[in-house]
């Protein structure tokens, strides 16, 4: 029955048509982390689930063609470094690690709350990529390899 990689055509088609919606929703949750429930971690998980949706439906080979895994690793590390970097800028500007050095803006607008949305975006990128990479790395194990004893 396993004529091709991935799942049946039904799952593939539904994934194809709906996966952008998952990404839009995840990014919305990240962008509005300082206004509504959610934030970097929740939105990042949703984005990771979007990636995993494609991964499960289409299989490993398709993901290799679609995404540059090395780039994702770099993105993960970069977002973490930027997070620490913003923290250090906080020390330099006001004297506290992660201190809020940008203007706070008006309440309930999108561009408000200083550095918090930036940090949310960084966390979202980190979590979204990292969670996907965790499952990806687990899928790279071959269960029959490397026996001992």
């Amino acid at each position: 029955m396993k004529s091709q990689e991935g799942m049946t055509i039904i799952v593939k088609t539904v994934t194809r048509i709906s996966v952008w919606l998952i990404f839009v929703y995840g990014i919305y949750i990240i962008f509005h982390g300082h206004l509504t429930p959610g934030g970097g971690f929740g939105g990042g998980v949703i984005i990771a689930l979007g990636f995993l949706n494609v991964f499960l439906a289409y299989g490993k080979e398709y993901i290799k063609k679609w995404l540059n895994i090395g780039l994702l690793h770099d993105l993960e590390a970069t977002s973490a470094i930027l997070f620490v970097g913003i923290g250090i800028i906080g020390i330099a500007m006001t004297g506290g690690f992660l201190a809020n050095f940008l203007s706070k803006g008006t309440l309930f607008r999108l561009f408000s709350a200083g550095t918090i949305p930036l940090l949310n975006i960084l966390i979202g990128a980190k979590v979204g990529v990292a969670l996907f990479l965790v499952v990806w790395s687990l899928s790279l194990f071959h269960i029959d390899e490397g026996g001992e004893q």
């Binding site: 770099d74 973490a80 620490v84 020390i91 690690f97």
Partner: peptide, 17 residues
Amino acid sequence: LPYFIIIPLLAAFLITL
């Protein structure tokens, strides 16, 4: 004091990058 947390974290991420 915060540098004792920042430096190793930064080093760890720089290494991975």
